[in-house]
Simulated scan of single mutants.
Amino acid sequence: MKRFARETPIGLKRRARKTARLLAETHPDAHCELDFSTPLELAVATILSAQTTDVRVNQVTPRLFLKYRSAADYAAADRAEMEEILRPTGFFRAKTDSLLKLGALLEEKHGGVLPDKLDELVALPGIGRKTANVVLGNAFGVPGITVDTHFRRLTNRFGWVHEDDPVKIEFLVADLIEKRDWTMLSHRVIFHGRRVCHSRKPACGACTLAAVCPSYGTGPTEAAPAAKLLKGPRARDLAVAAGVDPELVPASAALAAEEP
């Protein structure tokens, strides 16, 4: 029988909150990995992060933010110049189109200022619920759940949800976790997805969530092969937290490319 198959709704909520606490202990460094200094910059960076890595976006945005400092700058931008800057992020024509339209609509309807309300944000070009929740949580301090590919995959693996629809996942998880924790939970789940619980082969045998995860065994459960799958600058710390010899983690793990 699958682990937690007979779990009650209250049992699920308790396990979800225990998992959230373990994630907080496992990833004390969790944070928004997009570089920004204003709400507009975060909105732009999040739009650019589609189908690419945060690392790539952070390589592009310094030049972009230096040239375009306001909504008016984006509205008046030369399309060819912006496309050239955004080219490394992929889908640069569509992203340029979104930023030009975003700047224009902010100027037209919001006095050039990015709004801090969900319904107003999602009405803007290039901004869906995911981007809106990133901006609300990290630029405005309004709790929000960010359902990206990692969050969707892990919440299904955790057995918190059995859904692919991001909006349904958002509301189901919101019912399990206290509102004050939504923003940081999002970061911690995403950190875990990039560093431990990979899409193809999760590091089950080097995971701090093994005891509370119904999908334990999806990846290797032996310490040695699992430790080799850990990624990120704290890979050896992650091994220690899971009770695994950090010497099993290859030195290259700190530099390993993470999934977008």
Rank of each mutant, 00 (worst) to 15 (best):
E108M: 01
T96C: 13
T53S: 15
G111W: 15
A71G: 11
L106T: 12
T89N: 10
S70C: 02
A50K: 11
E83V: 03
G112H: 09
A72N: 04
Q59K: 10
V60H: 01
E107N: 12
G111K: 15
R93V: 06
A50V: 09
D54K: 06
E83M: 09
A94T: 10
A72T: 02
R56M: 13
N58V: 03
K101S: 14
N58F: 03
L106K: 14
D97Y: 02
K67F: 08
F91E: 13
E83I: 03
L86G: 05
K101G: 05
A77E: 02
Y68R: 01
A75H: 01
E83W: 02
P62K: 03
V57L: 10
V60Q: 02
A50E: 05
A80K: 08
V57N: 05
K95R: 13
Q59F: 05
L66I: 00
G112F: 11
E81H: 04
L86N: 03
A104S: 14
Y68L: 03
H110G: 04
L99N: 12
V55R: 15
K67P: 01
S70H: 03
V60W: 01
R56D: 07
S49V: 08
G103N: 12
E108N: 04
A72Q: 13
K101L: 14
L105N: 02
R56H: 10
I85C: 01
A75D: 01
F92K: 07
F65V: 09
K101H: 13
G90Q: 05
V57C: 12
A72V: 01
L64P: 11
V60R: 01
T89E: 07
D73S: 10
L100D: 13
V57M: 11
F92E: 08
G111F: 15
Q51N: 14
I47E: 03
E107S: 07
L106A: 14
T89L: 05
F91P: 09
T89K: 08
